[in-house]
Amino acid sequence: SFNTVDEWLEAIKMGQYKESFANAGFTSFDVVSQMMMEDILRVGVTLAGHQKKILNSIQVMRAQMN
C-alpha cells in the first residue's frame, strides 16, 4: 500500500500525472478512490492505455479499502 497519491502514481508508472492530480484536488486516497472516467479525463489523462491503467488501479484500491 502507498502513503501518498504521488507514490501510488509512481508505482503504477503514471508519475507524469502527479501535478495534474494535485492541481485538480485529487490528493488523498479517499478522493482518488471515488474517481470515475470523467475525473480521469478532467485531470488530463487522454491516452486510453493510461486511463485503463489508472482506472484498474483505482478499482483495486477500492477493493482494498472495504
Rank of each mutant, 00 (worst) to 15 (best):
G44L: 02
Q51S: 06
M14F: 05
N3V: 10
F21S: 00
V5A: 02
S1L: 13
S20C: 08
H50P: 03
R42M: 11
K53M: 14
N56C: 11
Q64D: 09
E38M: 08
V32L: 05
F26H: 04
Q16V: 11
F2Q: 07
N56V: 09
H50I: 02
N23R: 13
M36G: 15
K53E: 13
E10P: 01
G25R: 04
G49C: 10
A11W: 12
I12P: 01
V45N: 01
S57N: 06
G44V: 01
V43G: 06
M61P: 01
S20H: 14
Q34Y: 07
E19L: 10
M35H: 01
A24F: 12
G49D: 15
E19P: 06
E38V: 10
E19D: 12
D39L: 03
D30A: 12
N23T: 12
Q51W: 04
F26R: 03
G49I: 15
M65N: 07
A63Q: 15
M14H: 02
A48P: 14
G15L: 05
Q16H: 07
G49R: 11
V45D: 00
F2R: 06
T46W: 07
R42T: 11
E10I: 08
W8T: 00
N3Y: 12
A22T: 09
A48C: 08
V43A: 14
K13V: 07
M61Q: 04
F29N: 02
T4C: 08
G25F: 04
T46K: 10
S57D: 09
F2G: 06
I58Y: 00
L47T: 14
E19T: 13
E38G: 09
S1T: 15
T46Q: 11
Q51K: 05
V32P: 00
A22H: 13
Q59M: 14
M65P: 05
V45A: 03
M35T: 01
G49Y: 12
T4I: 04
E10G: 07
D39M: 02
N23D: 13
M36R: 15
I58P: 00
V5D: 01
F2C: 08
W8K: 00
K18L: 05
L41R: 13
W8L: 02
F26I: 13
S1P: 15
D6P: 12
Q16E: 10
Q16S: 07
